[in-house]
Simulated scan of single mutants.
Amino acid sequence: MSHARFPLPPHLCDAHLAPGFSEFSGVVLEDLSAVHPEQRHWLFNYVLNQLTHSVKPKYRELAFNHLRRAQGALDAYHQLRRLLGEYGAPGKRARSYFPALDQAEICVSFAAQAFELSNKLLLLSGDTPVYQHASEQELTTLRSFYIACKHVANMLDGSQFEAPDTVVFWFTQEGLQSRKRGVLTYQSLANVLRELAYDASVLASYISPVPESGT
């Protein structure tokens, strides 16, 4: 790594910024902008549907929060893709790393929360999850990374960080790397977001009427 990009030699970058910092050269993530054409409008489409569909209050709130997080996860992914795509440009490397990591944590956290809410919606409807684009293992890894993000303060208190780790996970050419949780590959992240997009697009475009009586 050139000193013009960051005024520390590689071994100090790895020890004081993030593991593997000096080796990461950026990556081109899969473009998910066309996964669903309405992905930036799911939440408002859902709200408009409420004008003509009567739903139980608990179902309504679960669906609203599911869509908000699904939309937020995809938005964060698009930002992450842009930042990592620019990473190798002169002057971008060190300055882009942590903004990109911020977007990765938002993406992972919002996606995991959206799946939790989706499962609650299915339970409320008497259905069980059926995944078409992501595997159970990929979703399990996603949840594991989310738990690490969620409980970072407890991890620090409990000395669960291993030297020289400074972050919950970091970038490699393959994916997001964690000392204790393995790798969430970029392909796996794209797969779970594609699964999420499918669920959200269905939910946003059509809400099955649920009678208010009996709520």
Score class of each variant (00 low, 15 high):
residue 92 K to T: 05
residue 54 S to A: 15
residue 79 Q to H: 12
residue 7 P to H: 04
residue 1 M to L: 10
residue 123 L to W: 09
residue 126 G to D: 01
residue 3 H to T: 14
residue 58 K to F: 12
residue 32 L to R: 00
residue 37 P to L: 07
residue 141 T to K: 10
residue 21 F to Q: 05
residue 20 G to A: 00
residue 95 R to C: 06
residue 166 T to H: 14
residue 205 S to W: 08
residue 110 F to V: 07
residue 191 N to R: 04
residue 170 W to P: 02
residue 168 V to W: 03
residue 20 G to F: 03
residue 84 L to A: 02
residue 156 L to M: 11
residue 141 T to N: 01
residue 59 Y to D: 11
residue 9 P to N: 09
residue 114 A to W: 06
residue 154 N to Y: 07
residue 211 P to N: 08
residue 181 R to K: 15
residue 2 S to I: 07
residue 161 F to A: 05
residue 196 L to G: 06
residue 215 T to D: 13
residue 80 L to D: 06
residue 207 I to S: 15
residue 130 V to L: 12
residue 21 F to H: 06
residue 69 R to W: 14
residue 206 Y to G: 07
residue 48 L to C: 13
residue 146 Y to A: 14
residue 83 L to K: 12
residue 211 P to R: 13
residue 40 R to Q: 13
residue 185 T to S: 15
residue 72 G to S: 12
residue 80 L to R: 04
residue 62 L to A: 04
residue 198 Y to W: 14
residue 106 I to F: 13
residue 97 Y to C: 01
residue 42 W to H: 03
residue 210 V to D: 15
residue 42 W to Y: 09
residue 177 Q to G: 02
residue 56 K to D: 08
residue 185 T to L: 04
residue 132 Q to D: 12
residue 165 D to Y: 00
residue 80 L to P: 05
residue 23 E to A: 15
residue 171 F to R: 00
residue 73 A to S: 09
residue 185 T to E: 04
residue 154 N to V: 08
residue 27 V to E: 05
residue 44 F to R: 12
residue 53 H to T: 15
residue 64 F to G: 08
residue 43 L to C: 09
residue 4 A to E: 13
residue 75 D to C: 07
residue 41 H to E: 14
residue 55 V to L: 14
